[in-house]
């Protein structure tokens, strides 16, 4: 009998860091020692019996295999358990990776524009670090990232220390004026409009709250980006992760298998129910 795809593997939470007031980072290793083999923007199902399991995007790059890393915002029962019950050293279950992942071949040699909002940076970060680790494969890289306040910005040591040293342009914004904040103030789509990047030879990748994504997509189109140049990642409720339990469908597509990464061209051909 082949392996049961909904049976978790044993894993350990090695390290936990508070990332923002409502988000923690979990560094996980597998007990079987076998690789997880994920691609940027793929997801994994984390199990914390008896509370259940939930799907999270893997925020670490496959080029940095020491840990599988997850940035978890407290919103529901599983995330609450992860925040308050799980400690460094706690054993959990993990299964995956799930989803199509990012089409790396599409972006080789291109300019890359990443646009993230809030915890939406977590999936993008997997790809951003992947690109920094294989930097010669890409031309220019620009990152536009924003959150409500400076303290809500995720992965601070990366956006303030590591990434500024990389060969990339980094543009940060927060929604409202905050003491000591000297970068842009305004919503991410507003900043995008202000920066007005040119679309020639660029692939734009965006993730954030649904409302932000909607306005970023509109903004990019206004700037002349074609639907094929715009890539986003979706999130729907999932249980099985293997295209059977039904709930993550958008028409005939199952986001857990056919997604979560879609180009705007693909989304335009799908029913608007996400």
């Amino acid at each position: 009998m082949t392996a049961n795809p909904i049976l978790p593997r044993r894993a350990v939470v090695e390290k936990i860091l508070q990332d923002t007031p409502d988000t923690k980072r979990f560094f996980v290793t597998l007990k079987d020692g076998e690789p997880f083999n994920h691609k940027p923007l793929q997801c994994a199902m984390l199990s914390v019996p008896p509370v259940g399991e939930a799907l999270f995007s893997i925020t670490s790059s496959p080029t940095r295999p020491e840990y599988l890393e997850f940035a978890v915002k407290e919103v529901g029962t599983v995330t609450k358990h992860l925040h308050y019950e799980v400690q460094e050293g706690t054993e959990i279950g993990i299964r995956g990776p799930y989803g199509n992942g990012f089409p790396i071949d599409v972006i080789r040699g291109k300019d890359l524009l990443f646009i993230g909002g809030g915890i939406g940076l977590a999936p993008l970060r997997s790809l951003i670090n992947y690109c920094f680790d294989t930097r010669k494969d890409y031309s220019k890289i620009q990152i536009i990232y924003g959150a409500r306040t400076p303290e809500d910005l995720s992965f601070k040591e990366e956006i303030f220390e590591n990434w500024p040293k990389e060969d990339a342009r980094l543009n940060l914004t927060v929604d409202v004026e905050s003491p000591g904040w000297e970068e842009f103030v305004g919503f991410v789509p507003t900043y995008l409009e202000h920066l007005a990047p040119t679309p020639e030879g660029v692939i734009a990748v965006t993730c954030g709250p649904p409302i932000m994504i909607r306005f970023v997509l509109q903004g990019l189109e206004k700037l002349g980006f074609q639907p094929e140049q715009i890539i986003t990642t979706l999130e729907l409720k999932m249980k099985c992760g293997v295209g059977k339990c039904g709930r993550c469908n958008i028409g005939e597509k199952y986001v857990c298998q056919d997604g979560p990464v879609f180009s705007l061209a693909e989304l335009n051909g799908m029913i608007p129910e996400f």
Binding site: P50, C240, K244, C245, R247
Partner: peptide
């Protein structure tokens, strides 16, 4: 064919069912 997945048990032992 839609199904849900839930846990039933204590932190020490239990089962996951669909």
């Amino acid at each position: 064919h839609c199904f849900d997945i839930q846990d039933d048990g204590s932190p020490e032992e239990g089962q996951r069912f669909r």
